[in-house]
Amino acid sequence: MNVIRRLWRIRSARVGVVLAVLLLTTAILGPMLLPLDPNAIDVRARFAGPSTAHWLGTDDLGRDTFTRLVHGSRMSLFIAALSALLGTLLGVTLGVITGFLGGWVDVAGMRVVDLFFAIPTLLVAIGIVALFGPSATTTILALGIAYTPLYARLVRGTVVSVRSRTYVDASRVLGARGVRLLRTDILPGIVPIALVQTTALLGFALVDEASLGFLGLGVQPPDASWGQMINAGRQFIFQAPWLTLIPGFAVILAVFSINLIGDGLRDALDPRASQRVGDT
């Protein structure tokens, strides 16, 4: 696709893509390659500093921080990806239905969205976790649902504006309507905005997973995720600050990479840029 080529031409986006590929490879292959068990407790090696045996030291139970970080990356990225995906699916569906159908469906749908919209995202997520109990699955559900209102609103607005374009009128005069009209004229018009928004959600989800984890409402021990590691290290912040700083840094790195890609996508999808380079 042309967008990818344009994205690659933007230097900062290239950095982001390289970082993301590194992170993904680590998350997917890392756990298979590392020799240590992330949950293996070794009380004799508690709070050990960096060494050849433990590259990034150990935690309060003597578990290897690096191993846990790599295993945790798999969990964190998995949660971020699935909650962004869930938010996208729900948001796009709701936004397209309300925006395309209009009328009372639109009014009712947007009322509900507004209601949710008034509550901060994380609070919605915390409420959902409180309902179902903390776990990786609830984290995904909670974040996905919490992201839906904003996404739905964005998509609805775009659909409403695309719906009134002249080429949509032209298709209507030809007799196109309903699903066909959505497929040929309306959905392709919202793809650019959805791409940018989903990328942004990935970044939010990484941070929010860490926040939920920090509050002890995310992934539960002994499973590792970045958020869970931050929460576990919190009690020893003065004794062994690396236990929180290292997973914190991992979150920052991942978010940074995603933001670079997101900004790049925004530029690559800019209609003015596409006028110059030629649209897909």
Partner: peptide, 10 residues
């Protein structure tokens, strides 16, 4: 306006 009446993506 034929710039507006043709879907640029099709």
């Amino acid at each position: 306006n034929p710039y507006l009446s043709l879907n640029p993506r099709r």
